[in-house]
Design a protein around this nucleic acid. Structure first.
Lengths: 133, 133
DNA sequence: TCTTGACTTAGAGTGTGCTCTAAGTTTTAT
DNA sequence: ATAAAACTTAGAGCACACTCTAAGTCAAGA
């Protein structure tokens, strides 16, 4: 079954703008999308799946450059399976590292919040006495 | 004890550049730093601690604008403790959400890696027969 | 048929967060 | 004393990832 979606429909589905979809195609993240007789883009369900995967790569911090490489490998077919896997594994490591840092930083921020809570209490009683603020 | 560090020393300690340290001061993330008689900046250990905390906020995705607000509240003293806590709590929620998304996206990427591994095997046996690639 | 709105392209513009330049002063090592 | 390195400022420039504009074509409803 050939799904045939307009750029606006795809924009709505993927949370990207029509501008961004054209941009992604222009820079090679998407292979040239099929066209209606009028020249308007018609996206297939495979296109949508690919766009959604691209979005996950972006959301996990992969730079556009690397996504372009990945898209190019994909276009070259099954002989690049290993390279694509390696690229994703390398990206996975970056995500793991980022997650670790994020969790560590979150911890410190949570400690600061606790510190503020404590200091707020002290300050409250003091400012009641001295009617500050 | 008054630690008196030059901008290069602080740059080395914080992994920021001297340029960035001046930039942070210029935009109000740092209150005007003390100066030597020559006009050169001299950073205190409190400055370092604050810069390190700022770096954690940045690393967890807080926009500069929000960091500026936070820095301003801090300058206003103890009466803004509650507001500062609320700002951090709101940021904490953003981090939590981001972590959740990251983990979900990571999962999908890991699945793709597994899928590639499987497909690689199939492809390997087939390409041996047909001597492709 | 007309009008409204969506589509097309090439290319310019934007926001964020730095990052660097230029021109001049200060410090430090020889 | 002098050269090299580090500091200062104001402001320009840059990388990234979009985001929008202009000028024109196409499509769908009244």
């Amino acid at each position: 079954m050939e799904t045939e979606l307009s750029i606006q429909q795809v924009a709505a589905m993927t949370q990207l703008t029509a501008h961004t979809l054209r941009y992604y195609e222009r820079i090679g993240l998407l292979a040239p999308v099929e066209r209606a007789a009028s020249g308007h883009r018609r996206y297939s369900s495979q296109d949508i799946a690919w766009i959604n995967f691209l979005t996950r790569l972006r959301a996990t911090g992969m730079p556009i450059r690397e996504m372009q490489q990945f898209a190019e490998l994909r276009r070259q077919g099954d002989c690049t399976l290993q390279q694509r896997r390696q690229l994703l594994e390398s990206h996975q490591q970056h995500i793991d590292q980022h997650l670790e840092e994020l969790i560590q930083n979150l911890k410190v921020i949570q400690e600061k919040i606790q510190y503020y809570k404590q200091k707020e209490k002290q300050h409250d009683t003091r400012s009641l006495r001295e009617s500050e603020c």
